[in-house]
Design a protein around this nucleic acid. Structure first.
Length: 307
DNA sequence: CACAGGAGTGTAGGGTTCAT
DNA sequence: ATGAACCCTACACTCCTGTG
């Protein structure tokens, strides 16, 4: 099993056909078919089921594909860097939760593309829990997370602490603009995602500390859906101010700060602990840190440096 | 440097599956 | 039933590596 065999495996999986994969790899179909057969003989199990209209990975094939993807990506980046005199090159995959993506992504993408034109940046949006899973599975090189559990096999670097605010529909709250005790906010009807979403875990933990039973109804997965329901006055929610800045400016939502105590969540930058990052990954991490610093310094992200 | 053996590849042809 | 698409096998060739 070598990198060429793994590349062939991924190409066949991507094309769902040995013939099309052979065309893409600029080789003859029988040659690729035999390459796959050798790999299957080596691992001792079929990796693809052959059909009349192509091939489909078996369970063993899917397992090997999942493990091969990060290896091939790392090798390709290394290869590209070596060829390009250590200029970062290849591909780097970043996972970002939706709320952080709103504020941070445009800055990071623009800055990184300008500084490192030879690196192909791929961004995957997903809730923190998914980003954690994808990092652990090797699908991501770098991830931005909320509420990262220590000892999760990830190398973590704190980025910022972000206060949550109560988000309501305009006109639904006569006290808009005045701080609200957290315990009172938790007894309002809240629209939140279900556990293990990081935001929900944070709210549940805060409620337990205060001895309050939060009123959460309905549970909704997805930031746009939550914001839409709140805007219609069907309940309130708890979010970082940056996640609703646009709606607040447009008058579609209002916010209230929380107090006694406030509630904030930590944003961290994570990468798989057991893997040496490529130069491209290191440069992307630097870009994320720089842009977070810039957004905090200019007040465009209502948060503060980690304490 | 020459040669033998092995590994890998391309071409040709056949079998299977699927859509019409 | 037929043709298209796809995969597999057989055979011949090329290239690489080890050995003398």
């Amino acid at each position: 099993m070598d990198i060429a065999a793994l590349r062939a495996l991924l190409t066949i999986a991507d094309c769902a056909s040995i013939s099309r994969a052979a065309e893409r790899l600029d080789t003859a179909q029988p040659a690729l078919s035999r390459q796959l057969k050798r790999l299957e003989d080596e691992v001792g199990t079929p990796l693809f089921a052959r059909h009349g209209r192509g091939v489909k990975p078996t369970a063993a094939g899917r397992a090997l594909i999942a493990r091969a993807e990060p290896l091939v990506r790392q090798f390709t980046s290394l290869e590209a860097e070596l060829k390009g005199n250590a200029t970062p090159a290849g591909e780097v995959v970043l996972g970002v939760p939706p709320t952080a993506a709103l504020v941070l992504l445009p800055e990071v993408v623009a800055d990184f593309a300008a500084r490192h034109p030879r690196v192909r940046l791929k961004v995957v949006e997903g809730f923190s829990g998914f980003v954690t899973e994808w990092l652990e599975a090797g699908r991501l090189d770098l991830g931005i997370l909320y509420h990262a559990a220590p000892g999760s096999g990830l190398h973590l670097e704190p980025l910022l602490d972000e206060p949550l605010v109560l988000v309501s529909a305009p006109g639904s709250d006569p006290q808009t603009g005045h701080p609200l005790p957290l315990a009172k906010a938790l007894t309002r009807r809240l629209i939140l995602p279900s556990p293990p979403h990081g935001l929900r875990v944070l709210v549940d933990q805060a409620a337990a500390r205060l001895g309050v039973r939060p009123w959460i109804d309905p549970e909704v997965e997805g930031l746009p859906a939550i914001k839409g329901l709140v805007a219609k006055g069907l309940g309130d929610t708890l979010l970082p101010a940056a996640a609703v800045a646009e709606e607040v400016a447009a008058g579609r939502l209002t916010t209230r700060h929380l107090e006694n105590p406030g509630l904030s969540r930590r944003l961290v930058l994570a990468r798989p602990a057991g893997r040496t990052p490529t130069t491209a990954t290191t440069r992307l991490a630097e870009t994320v840190h720089n842009q977070v610093h810039h957004l905090l310094a200019t007040g465009r992200w209502p948060a503060h440096r980690p304490t």
